[in-house]
């Protein structure tokens, strides 16, 4: 500690594990749940209707009879009038499965725990909103492989299991988002929405991770956790740049020009990610670690089409 301490950039203090989901945070979640209902009334509830012949109670339409259809579904009144065999179809309400994929690779712990804590809080908020809408929520923590998985749960009371799940995580290893797609595809019978919370620093390419979910018939949504400090390492001169995840080093002379070029490259990469998602109709939102959580959940997510 010296007299130049005031010159050093102040780091946002990381929350302890106990404080991560404290009472204030829980109150914030409740506010988010109420606010989201008011904003998206009738659109966000687990009222996704599927048209399944012969089940449900609300008539939808007819389709021609094919051998093997349940004879009880035949609309005998239509047959009496038109002598055509038609099968009645009903709309059935179906609960939605929401899988939250949380990146727990070493890069999520870069520059202190602020980024990781923010990501965990985002994941918790998404889980709470989904549980409040009676959706089935499952969680997957992934780095080099799937580190941990929370079985599907339903109902608001399950949020504490989510908290427990998130509290026990530590950032380590390399990013391999595609592992999450494979695991979810293998273990979940029902497909649904897969919300990826990650910084997307995947050596194999963020595209592989998102595509893996798409190929497994999930509807991916991306919450891109960003930190402005990633674009500028702060140091200048002859340095050895070391990758947080792989430990690979590279000797570089950091000049202001080079740092400016890197900043541009970083911005370009973020645009690349966003463009990739838009092109594939993947909902995408950036969540800066310095931003307010509730604002990001309500405004940013709405703008990005993550909730509809």
């Amino acid at each position: 500690m010296g007299w130049l301490d005031w010159l050093r950039p102040k780091k946002k203090p990381a929350a302890s594990e106990a404080e991560l989901f404290d009472e204030a945070f829980q109150r914030k979640l409740e506010y988010l749940a109420v606010a989201s209902r008011r904003l998206f009334a009738g659109r966000m509830r687990a009222e996704r209707r599927t048209r399944i012949a012969g089940s449900g109670i609300e008539f939808a339409d007819h389709r021609p009879y094919t051998p093997g259809d349940d004879l009880r579904a035949l609309d005998w009144s239509v047959y009496g009038r038109t002598e055509r065999l038609l099968v009645k179809r009903f709309e059935e309400e179906e609960d939605l499965t929401i899988a939250i994929v949380l990146d727990v690779s070493a890069s999520m712990g870069f520059g202190g725990r602020a980024r990781f804590d923010h990501a965990r809080r985002l994941a918790a908020a998404m889980a709470y909103l989904s549980l409040s809408n009676l959706d089935r929520v499952t969680m997957v923590a992934v780095s080099t492989k799937v580190v941990r998985r929370l079985p599907p749960a339903r109902g608001r009371g399950q949020i504490f299991k989510v908290f427990e799940f998130l509290r026990g995580l530590e950032p380590s290893g390399e990013t391999a988002l595609s592992e999450a797609g494979r695991t979810l595809g293998a273990e979940l019978k029902r497909r649904g929405v897969a919300i990826v919370v990650s910084d997307l620093y995947d050596p194999a390419g963020f595209e592989r991770g998102i595509n893996a979910l798409r190929y497994q018939k999930f509807e991916p949504m991306v919450i891109h956790v960003t930190d402005a400090r990633d674009a500028d390492p702060g140091a200048r001169g002859d340095v050895l740049l070391v990758d947080t995840e792989t430990g690979d080093g590279r000797e570089v002379t950091l000049t202001p020009a080079l740092v400016a070029r890197f900043r541009d490259a970083h911005t370009h990469w973020r645009h690349e990610v966003e463009g990739f998602c838009k092109a594939r109709r993947v909902a995408y939102a950036q969540a800066d670690v310095e931003g307010a959580l509730e604002e990001q959940v309500l405004n940013l997510f709405r703008r990005s089409g993550l909730v509809e």
């Binding site: 390492p233 001169g237 740049l241 070391v242 570089v252 070029r261």
Partner: peptide, 16 residues
């Protein structure tokens, strides 16, 4: 050289 940690070295490789 001084060690400087970066979150994602492949991006630097692209610039260099």
């Amino acid at each position: 050289r001084r060690r400087v940690l970066v979150p994602f070295a492949p991006l630097w490789a692209r610039v260099l």
